[in-house]
Design a protein around this nucleic acid. Structure first.
Lengths: 264, 264
DNA sequence: CTTTGTGAACAGTTTCACAGCC
DNA sequence: GGCTGTGAAACTGTTCACAAAG
């Protein structure tokens, strides 16, 4: 296999790096704020500061879209807003369905940022018959029996899953079968989807766990300025001192106290 | 301050790559499920499938933690659960405050995954006096005047911001001043914080915009393998600054006036 | 002068493929 | 035989630094 990959001409025609795509919405937000204040132009430095990135990165990102700046001057705010909106596909309105109208689903339905930028809540769907017809954020909840019909009639291609984890996969399957090709998943589960369907996930507890990791590290550091106790307990690769809980049978942690990571 | 945040690379001591840290919670979740089903061991292949990653990546990730597997056999589930929990700092309970008890804050307060994995809601805080004392998810809301006191007394180091964007930065400043060093931000704003404070953000509209980008691309591809359809140009080097996109109507502009043209 | 746009160096991440151990 | 652990290769993303443009 010489250069394995290369079935797809992905590199050729339209290669905007994923990392750049993920930052475009950030730039767009900063630009929109400037636009509202009628600021006509910005430099990469200013805009970068507003978006929380560094200016070299921003310029590089913009260079993938084309040459939209003016040397010695900066970027035209309105023009950039338009270009980025177009690149992100926000010049059209995307109908979105939200499935699972619990606390979270209701919060999402009422979220302003939704309607404000290219998205429209086409329907709220819940499996509980008691919810049917009840208005949430001004939109009446529909029963999940209607799911396929709604998606087809409205041409919905983006679905938001805010159900309990246990039913997320089946909801996902139904959405995909009905024609949805992009899913935003709030349920704490790994969804499996066919090729060609995009899934992004938002998981509160994962985010908190990542923060806890860094938090713990800070706590450990502060007591030990910078000596940093190299081998406190983490065996660097190649060293086999992994305590390895009592050889064969025991699957307990090495230090007495056994974890018991709670079952829900 | 603008340039304040000096990117914090891996804290130069115990080098677990950030990308690996971000996946540990995923592995932990899959392992916890196996543990509940009393599965004693898993191979990297099985666990990877359950976590939605490939097995080489998983093995590489685990290799940063130490040598916790057994060749020819796999990984001991309980032992790994313990090791990862410890690595993430979940063997202790982290008190968390949620600021901004609107729709979203209430949803977060009631989110089960919170309490279930190493985190404890220490307080719900809102600036609206009408909310004070009202129980949300069984916890009485406290007024934001109490913020500093609560953080100090409970030793809270993680804060969740679920306020409107307009007040997020000041809430953030108060949290940090009171001792919080990790923040999970749900407000659609870039927060600036001093060095040593971690911020993670969750932004619904950014996620949707990223999906829209890919969705648009799919739509363009299906009719035209060549892409580039109505698209102006993606000229690489020198592109004549004659943008003038502005096809009809298009979308809303913050204020009517839309696709500006570059100034001469 | 000021500021963009970008090659080239660097850094981080993923994948490959196989040696080493069970 | 089966499976982990890991160097090395391939890839993706970031930063540097400067020539080119206004």
């Amino acid at each position: 296999m010489a250069t394995g990959r290369t079935h797809r001409p992905a590199t050729r025609s339209r290669g905007i790096p994923e990392a750049t795509v993920a930052r475009l919405p950030l730039y767009l937000r900063a630009l929109t704020a400037l636009s509202e204040r009628s600021v006509p132009t910005v430099s990469s430095e200013e805009l970068a500061a507003a978006a929380g990135v560094n200016s070299a990165k921003l310029r590089k990102d913009f260079s993938y879209l084309g040459s939209y700046g003016t040397r010695g001057v900066g970027y035209d705010v309105e023009y950039l807003v338009y270009q980025i909106s177009r690149e992100l596909g926000l010049t059209q309105d995307w109908p979105v369905v939200i499935v699972g109208i619990g606390n979270l689903g209701a919060a999402l339905a009422g979220y302003g940022g939704f309607a404000s930028r290219g998205f429209r809540v086409a329907a709220l769907i819940d499996a509980d018959p008691a919810m049917t017809g009840k208005p949430v954020a001004g939109i009446p909840v529909q029963h999940s029996d209607e799911l396929e019909k709604i998606i087809e009639e409205d041409g919905v291609s983006i679905g938001v899953i805010a159900t309990p984890a246990g039913v997320a996969q089946q909801v996902c399957d139904r959405l995909v079968a009905a024609g949805v090709t992009s899913i935003l998943n709030f349920a704490p589960t790994v969804l499996s989807v066919p090729d060609g369907v995009d899934v992004r996930k938002v998981d509160l507890s994962i985010e908190l766990q990542i923060l806890a990791f860094h938090e713990q590290r800070k706590a450990g550091e502060e007591s030990n300025a910078d000596t940093d106790a190299a081998d406190a307990d983490t065996a660097t690769a190649a060293t086999p001192p992994a305590p390895r809980g009592a050889t064969g049978g025991s699957r307990k942690g090495p230090d007495g106290d056994v974890p018991a990571v709670m079952p829900a």
